[in-house]
Design a protein around this nucleic acid. Sequence first.
DNA 1: CTGAAAGCGCTAACAG
DNA 2: CTGTTAGCGCTTTCAG
Lengths: 346, 346
Amino acid sequence: MKFESVTIKDIAKVLHLSTSTVSRALRDSYEISEETKKLVVEYAKSVNYRPNPSALNLKKRRSRTLGITISEIANSFFSQIIAGVESVAQEKGYNVIISQSFENFEREQEAVRNLSQSVDGMLISLSSETKSLEHIEQLQDRGMPVVFFDRITKSLEGHKVRSNNFKGAFQATAHLIQNGYTRIAFVGNPDNLAIIKERKRGYDEALESHQIPPTEAYIKYCLHGGLSYDEVERVMEELLQLENPPQAILSCADKITTNCYRYLVKHDIRIPDQMALVGFSNLDLTEFLHPSLSIIQQKAVTMGVQAAELLIQQIESKRPVVDFSEIVLEPDFFARASSAPSDPGK
Amino acid sequence: MKFESVTIKDIAKVLHLSTSTVSRALRDSYEISEETKKLVVEYAKSVNYRPNPSALNLKKRRSRTLGITISEIANSFFSQIIAGVESVAQEKGYNVIISQSFENFEREQEAVRNLSQSVDGMLISLSSETKSLEHIEQLQDRGMPVVFFDRITKSLEGHKVRSNNFKGAFQATAHLIQNGYTRIAFVGNPDNLAIIKERKRGYDEALESHQIPPTEAYIKYCLHGGLSYDEVERVMEELLQLENPPQAILSCADKITTNCYRYLVKHDIRIPDQMALVGFSNLDLTEFLHPSLSIIQQKAVTMGVQAAELLIQQIESKRPVVDFSEIVLEPDFFARASSAPSDPGK
DNA sequence: CTGAAAGCGCTAACAG
DNA sequence: CTGTTAGCGCTTTCAG
């Protein structure tokens, strides 16, 4: 089954004109008489003519398509990002192709390589298993505009949009300490991600500024980004089996937060009395959970919007962009019941 | 800035071969000697050759791209659908372009027309304001494979994947009645959507089978699909201002359910004592809300998977498909606290 | 003001 | 087994 559609040639034939005249008339060229233009434009409208995008792409060497690679769509943070990206793309006449890495390096490489031929530019949030950036560097070397968002890297140039991760983690950790928790675990994605390093730094400094010595055993990294419940379950069990288990958890990824919460409820570990929880999350309705969940919320839609705007700007720029911006969005912290002990100071 | 990439011509030049030989070698044609093949394939790999998709599309008249039009991405149901679609698309080597209607008819028309030139087939869930199907019929007439999912229509042919909406609504309503509620409101998207008609029918029949007379004032349709909180707020206020307000609400859309819940909590209307709530929802963690939310949950990921599989099958079918399937997925009903009165039978 | 022709990257007859 | 050629739909010189 093939889709039949009207071409410029068809129009030319019917109107007894050449394809070039039709082409020019349609793009309102000054060299075409008003009459001819009108004739062509009206006929084109009547047959619902739409230019073939592939032909246009081939000719113009651009596709008016943006690529975006993320870990997975089924994640409130990323779907909000996408909503933001789509909104500016739609407005500026671009399409968006999504590619998921599922936190896997090979899949990310493959996705990036695949997209590279189909898009005018790319929005990238690195996977948590990414160990090298060659695949991206190659693209950039050949002139592909790349904007990094969320999980950015210091190693490559390009526009970057990220949250103030240090602050988010610092604030949340300090909040836990103020609420009387001293044994605080840090659970996050692997720290080859700069974003996690930053959050870890926020956590570390908050402890330090309150004279709480760090505990190595409280630091846990989920290799697969907490994508599966099992992974988080394992981490939780390791933490609980410590001689001196933590009293609170700072979770550093949307999926991990959700799965921690699920684990605690499932195992009848009372939140916050037996275990307090604060996490990065962009889920809706966390305020209505029981207990309500304290969260660090990122400005996901805004992040998508800004990243897409920078990307389109770079794509449409006449001269190579050399001056890159790094936009930092402030996360919002919501202190709720999951981190407020009924008996503070215990 | 344009993206430079290696073409078949470049390879041909370097290896002193013709472009056709290179082309054939790359697609492992039987007419090419093993040596030449090896030479070409290896060189191609070394320079990271990737065929230009636009050129391929133009030639083959297909894009290996699926289009999907939905109301909006920032909706748990639809993002799960997309996750399902993406998974089979990725597996079968297709890209996916998403288009959002935001429940607006004009935007849907525009989206469909836009996509029509860029995709090999389309997955469509109608917007709640869609009043005519010409734009889709036109596509189909010109041979574009279209698979309807979720919000399907009886008026057009094509594969269809949907939930058993009648049953979902019937079950939830019957559950409310069994829990002692008799004054039950129905809040949904406009009933030009067949899916809503079905849910309404489920609601009606559940009432009827328990000898509860219907009350016109309890039936509310959100014109914009409950996309904005304000819309739902208005509906809720209308319901509460009735002389004899309902005791329970059956909400028939993800967004409406969330916004109803939010409204009730915000206005300190105790759930379920002052107002019970059951709704269609695919949100995560509804079980942990306080009170936990009774939901009718659709098999969203499966729906995406099946719809995408049918679409690809139709796209790749040699002969026009005339025999269309309609897949019906059974929703899961979870009875929770939001519909279980402490004082049943009141 | 309009047309003829070339070319974007690729495939597929058709020739050898 | 390999090369020449035409053409997918469109834009764009270059000629008239």
